[in-house]
Design a protein around this nucleic acid. Sequence first.
RNA 1: GGCCCGGUAGCUCAGCUGGAUAGAGCACCAGCCUUCUAAGCUGGGGGUCAUUGGUUCGAAUCCAAUCCGGGUCACCA
Length: 599
Amino acid sequence: MTLAAQIRMATEDALKHLYPGVEIPVSSINVNQVKPEFTGDYTVVLFPFVKLLRQKPDELGQQLGNYLVEKTGLFSGFEIVSGFLNLTVKDSYWINFLLNQFNNPHYGEKPKHDRRIMVEYSSPNTNKPLHFGHLRNIFLGYGMAEILKANGNQVVKANLINDRGIHICKSMIAWQRYADGDTPERTGVKGDHLVGEYYVKFNNAYKEEVQKLVAEGMDEATAEKEAPIMKEAQEMLRQWEAGDHETRSLWEMMNGWVYKGFDVSYRKLGVDFDKVYHESDTYLLGKTIVEQGLQKGVLYKKEDGSVWVDLTDEGLDHKLLLRGDGTSVYITQDLGTAKLKYNDYKLDQSVYVIGDEQNYHMQVLKLILKKLAEPCADGIYHLSYGMVELPTGRMKSREGTVVDADDMVAEMIGLAQEQTEQAGKTEGCSQEELEKLYETIGLGALKFYLLRVDPKKKMIFDPKESIDLHGFTATFIQYAHARICSILRKENMPLLPPNNKFQTFCCKEAIFPAEKKLVLTLEQYPEVLESAAAEYNPSLLCNYSFLLAQLFNSFYDEHSISKAENEEKKELRLMLIIMTAKTLRHAMHLLGIRLPEKM
RNA sequence: GGCCCGGUAGCUCAGCUGGAUAGAGCACCAGCCUUCUAAGCUGGGGGUCAUUGGUUCGAAUCCAAUCCGGGUCACCA
């Protein structure tokens, strides 16, 4: 249990003993870190008790403070400042904490339990390469899955690939028309990019055809429907659904190119999946659920045969689930897929990492499943994230303002190389090590940039600012880590020394403020990791890691480790920095960010 | 128009289950490398927390209204 939690419990206990018979709600117990301008480590806010106990804050604080000091053994003293009970934690608490945890590789994690959670993320279309917006999704999904794992859950990372539909037919038609049999092998173009090129070609040709028809006197709306290339694409979709052999093999070939391309990107990004679903396998699902819903009377049928659900009780609308001809719509297959996932893995929870433009859709999905009494309904959680926008507004593929994911990665790695060479601290590194370092720094910067903001907020992507490797960045954290490793190297100390390493440590001297801040923050890591899971918010780990790195840098500037005042201080500081490096590594690793030992 | 989300320093963001004088980073200014990595550290300027009213010992945080920005309300996915 973290110290803050212990203080909360001890306070509850103290109030019960000191004021028997008075009901004090647990929520009124407020434990915070003491502001730097006051003495003490943690503070209990006294105001909430004043009214309940009809006592003055000072008297109340004295009694509570005395009780806490006496009974818990955690504190060396306390002070009451205008309604705040500021407690000073005994140095021995921090020392014991360090001795117990300094080399625990699982510090902050929860024991394994059998709660099963699926995290669906990435979920790309197969008609174009990944762009910058996908990266936020991918990093969020990967990070969230790892955070949930670290909190003891059994996690399945899933990818639901949207591999069928009109969009891929568009690329296919354009390829047939214009490619002259070109393949990724022949052109040397990455498969997903090649298919994307034909998607763009389709749209250009389509635009031209519409313009031509309008010039011939057709109104625009009709022209958009009548353009030959669009009709071809629609016909191809019908062929595909009918299982036409030629269409299917073209589809398989082109999707194959895209998958190969995606695999390269995913590997580069350092993300993976335990399960891949394809929409071509799932798009017909959901009909049986709808049939059952009709029988149960939860859904209703109109005269034209279409099936609807009435959500007006929930303040929403009527929603179509099956067309008059019996074919399904988007949400129908999602109903089926939700159930499929649930049955495949006996899920307690199913997380969908999807942009916030689908908030309404996800709300409806969950509601319908609830109405149908499907057991998968309760576990559905929409991890909704805001769009990534450019300073000029939203990225629009039609306007060519989309930032390609592969390009962005390459650019960041290039920048990392440039900066590293400028810093000139890597003599003795092999070419291979250098390449790896550039990737660690470049990708780290990119991931951190996209994860440091609260997911639900939309974010502005300013290309100039995103490539800054100073300040609130992964580079800053990596640098602190490299500094620690450098010290440990010179001390001939492994990153995680054996358990008996500091066995003879004894603490006679007081802990200095810079040391205290570090250890106090280290002690909070388990709570941060827990919150990141509970709030589905990886950015908490970014904030925390940055703070920890900042505190280390200040500490490093103020105190020497290798030339500490004495052996005791040296050992204390070694434990501190070992634990700092380990915690930074742990937190960043969950987000897929590596920390170099040298940079 | 209905519903949802947001508005905090010049810019990008923390803080939001009410608690001490609202914090970081970037940018700007002034210092710090013969001492463990200066991709760093220390200090400084910069705020009507969109507006107005309410709740209370206390409001950036909760409630109401207003203004501004975005999303969504398809037999598209």
